[in-house]
Design a protein around this nucleic acid. Structure first.
Lengths: 351, 351
DNA sequence: TCAGAGAATGTAAACGTTTACATCGGCGAA
DNA sequence: TTCGCCGATGTAAACGTTTACATTCTCTGA
């Protein structure tokens, strides 16, 4: 099979300790000896056995990544950010996706034990108790956009509240006074925060109460499609709708198109997430953008820092800003974006 | 830290060998002893140290996954398929993405050595020589949609040729006689196969030579945008264009819209890949769909089989079918698809 | 010349498993 | 009774590293 450190030592006519020292760059070694060892290692194609190494160093140089059953680009973007940062620091990624329920996530969590030095968890179905029950004490964990409730874990969240408020302000700035909202699933953390941001901003802008302006949704296009009819039935009729995510906003758009309701002429529409499809809708959908890649990168950065600091590390909470993207669906008379910028965003290697 | 097998043995009042036997289900053990051991292991939250285990078994129960710098949904879909199958067989995934060039891929390849039992490689920049140079002899490897040239490696490819031919036949069936083609990058395997399929099908349908009907592209929207003008300048003017991927087809669509050229009235357009945006274009883009998840799942299945068979395994090549998706851009008068099906496809968890 | 410092290198224990082999009973057959 | 077999369990070696400690070598300064 593969060469062992002992064979390299024999080939370079030194002891195994010296080989180890040379390859790990610790301890004093003579220039010439180092060269000899490295040459022998190259020649034999020596690669240290990670198992044996982790057995004694208690380090695996791998990070576990737990992701929910994401579709579309979220998965890719999250991994992209995490991977780049991890690789830069010499860490590998043990990825586990598609966790529908809490039980699956627990199994995955267990399977990671002993394989990784730390964990990045992005899963709505994993909460603090589940986590602490399945993890060795004091394992470095970074929670990504999970429902954090003042736990002892590190976490990073998107500024859902601020993003939602920005969208409401944007619509209000365009003259809209009655702004309806299609909510996400009631038990969804992001949805709850967006709802809160919406309510607060509407109150600030118009002093109005939002009761009677909220329509329940569940993040699917279908629920957006259904919501359209409900909103049109409100009296007085709202002049704008803010959907808690883009999928529902797209549902709204297709319903309005079928009914002959003009967007943004008759009613303005805004979404959240700025998924790639958003800019290709007719009319292009105004939304709130979040850089998932940046989220992942930041998470990995902090996890690596935690790994370095060891027990001195103090967990804390962080919020990543969301950015308003005004397009035509909200009535913003933004010109057609220059062709080049669209390309930059959606280009990809094939397939 | 974590409990060791020795502590479990002491707690259950047996030897370490017995604990190992119970937990691995091999060797004869008394019913009662088994129960006692399992109870102790649970109580102590014992998880075997994978490093120590792999040191002696020579197995890691992990599969390396090398992916290119994919954007959009390809990444997610590929991982989804691979992950599901791997998890079912008790394997974990060591993922490494974002490999721009061959050097990066090589580094990643090396880093995986000793960490994984097998490899799934999906990377246009990795070829057979690079692979064999950086891999231990006889390592199970599955090539996904790579440029395979009769090598000794297992591989699975998409039926680019068949898909392209299907699109041409579809257009010809709608009455088109002059069908132009926007090609992909010249050194891209998929692009080359699609071009071949196009040429062959055009020859079969009309007996015509395709010289003078091909326009160079590079898979970006921009190149599609530029291609539009070239195609319109051909004499006699083609009545249909088949772009080698959807991004370029989208470039065509936006160019035509700006120029006031009606699609499909003045010219029909078809793409390849059926990316999610395709159905949301105006008009919805006809394309050729490929299930990337199925591709990944199939790859993992075969890799696992190879792992089981060991040296008895014989590598072979496999092709996965591509499916034509006719929409309005090709002039197919498919009615607006029922709302529900659109939802099923694009729904996703948030964010 | 030589003590002693420090650099360079070697020796061997330890990490936590699995497993070949040894051991120990108990039981049926001779 | 005794032999041999077999099921259940224990003992200890081996896997490939890292590293504390021991040893050897090479100077430097008195």
């Amino acid at each position: 099979m593969s060469a062992t450190i002992r064979e390299v030592a024999r080939a370079a006519d030194v002891s195994v300790a010296t080989v180890s020292r040379v390859l790990n760059g610790k301890g004093p070694v003579k220039e010439a000896t180092g060269r000899r060892v490295r040459a022998a290692a190259d020649r034999l194609r020596y690669v240290p056995h990670v198992g044996a190494r982790s057995l004694i160093t208690r380090r695996t140089h791998a990070i576990g990544v737990l992701l929910p059953d994401l579709f579309g680009e979220f998965f890719s973007e999250a991994i992209r950010g995490i991977d780049r940062t991890a690789r830069g620091a010499g860490y590998q990624l043990l990825v586990s996706g598609s966790h529908g329920d809490s039980a699956q996530a627990e199994t995955a969590l267990r399977a990671m034990r002993g394989r990784v030095d730390g964990l990045v968890v992005m899963s709505p179905s994993v909460d603090a108790p589940t986590l602490s029950a399945n993890l060795p004490e004091g394992w470095p964990v970074m929670l990504l956009n999970c429902a954090v409730d003042g736990t002892a874990f590190d976490s990073i969240n998107i500024d859902n509240e601020g993003g939602a408020a920005a969208m409401v302000k944007h619509l209000a700035g365009l003259g809209h006074r009655r702004i309806a909202h299609v909510t996400g699933p009631v038990d969804n953390w992001d949805a709850k925060e967006r709802l809160r941001g919406y309510r607060h901003a509407v109150f600030l802008e118009s002093g109005e109460d939002t009761r009677g302006l909220e329509v329940p949704g569940d993040f699917t296009e279908e629920s957006g499609y259904r919501a359209a009819r409900l909103v049109l039935g409100m009296r007085p009729r709202p002049t704008a709708i803010f959907a808690a995510n883009d999928s529902m906003a797209i549902g709204l758009l297709s319903a309005f198109q079928e009914m002959g309701v003009k967007v943004p002429g008759d009613i303005a529409v805004g979404g959240f997430d700025d998924i790639p499809i958003a800019r290709f809708m007719t009319p292009p959908l105004s939304s709130v953008a979040v850089s998932i890649a940046a989220l992942g990168a930041r998470a990995m950065e902090r996890l690596l820092a935690a790994l370095r600091d060891g027990s001195r590390h103090v967990p804390r909470h962080e919020t990543l800003p969301a950015r308003l993207v005004a397009r035509r669906s909200s009535g913003s008379r933004s010109p057609k974006p220059p062709t080049s910028s669209r390309h930059a965003r959606t280009r990809r290697k094939d397939p």
